[in-house]
């Protein structure tokens, strides 16, 4: 049965949501009781869309990574460091190797297939982040995701939670939900002496706590 009323001139009966206390609260699931059933249907549909999205997204990332993997190691390293601004220590982290290994690659050595795949995956992931849009994907990865704690999106990437990180970039999960997945003891493990602040240039940066 349709929830929409029979056609009629616009008549406002209900108290506008903005007139209610805590109307914008993330805790209240349903302010419009009349839309309850319709909202349930929308939530179900939304859930289906999200499930589909989560199913499709890894394929998208995988396809992008495959495309990146066709490039030479030199091109991949150049893309990550020069174009994206990734520090060599972080290139080593995404590849799962030491910095000396990366130095050898730059000198002409050939990485293992696994390392090459990881480099390609990192390059593809950074491309995906730009679509959210995140203007500086590497910078975004490096800044702590929760004030007062040192855990960064890079830590989440390194732990292999790429899908979760994409949900976080798309603001479908909160920072705390991400950290809960990363490490249930994050409050102790990542307690930081640094704090996140907005620098004069408008970018989020870190500094020692006062």
């Amino acid at each position: 049965m349709s929830e929409t009323p029979t056609s009629a001139p616009t008549v406002v009966y209900e108290i506008e949501p903005s007139e209610l206390t805590a109307s914008g609260s993330a805790v209240l699931r349903d302010l419009g009781y009349r839309a309850g059933r319709l909202r349930d249907e929308v939530e179900l549909l939304n859930r289906d869309v999200n499930d589909h999205h989560r199913t499709v997204r890894p394929y998208d990332l995988s396809e992008r990574a495959s495309s990146k993997a066709r490039k030479s190691v030199e091109t991949l390293l150049d893309e990550l460091s020069t174009e994206r601004g990734m520090a060599w220590r972080d290139v080593a982290r995404v590849a799962g190797v030491s910095r000396s290994a990366v130095r050898k690659w730059r000198a002409g050595d050939t990485p293992s297939p696994e390392s090459r795949t990881r480099l390609a995956l990192a390059a593809a992931f950074l491309d995906l982040l730009e679509q959210f849009p995140i203007e500086d994907p590497v910078g975004w990865l490096e800044v702590p995701i929760l004030p007062g704690y040192s855990a960064t999106a890079f830590d989440v990437f390194e732990a292999g939670h790429l899908d979760l990180l994409l949900d976080y970039a798309g603001q479908r999960v909160t920072a705390i939900e991400v950290l809960d997945v990363l490490d249930t003891s994050w409050r102790e493990r990542f307690s930081s002496t640094f704090e996140v602040f907005t620098a004069p240039d408008g970018e989020r940066s870190i500094r020692p706590k006062k």
Partner: peptide, 11 residues
């Protein structure tokens, strides 16, 4: 109403 309630689903 019928369902899981109007409170929930948030932080």
């Amino acid at each position: 109403l019928d369902g899981a309630g109007v409170v929930g689903g948030g932080p």
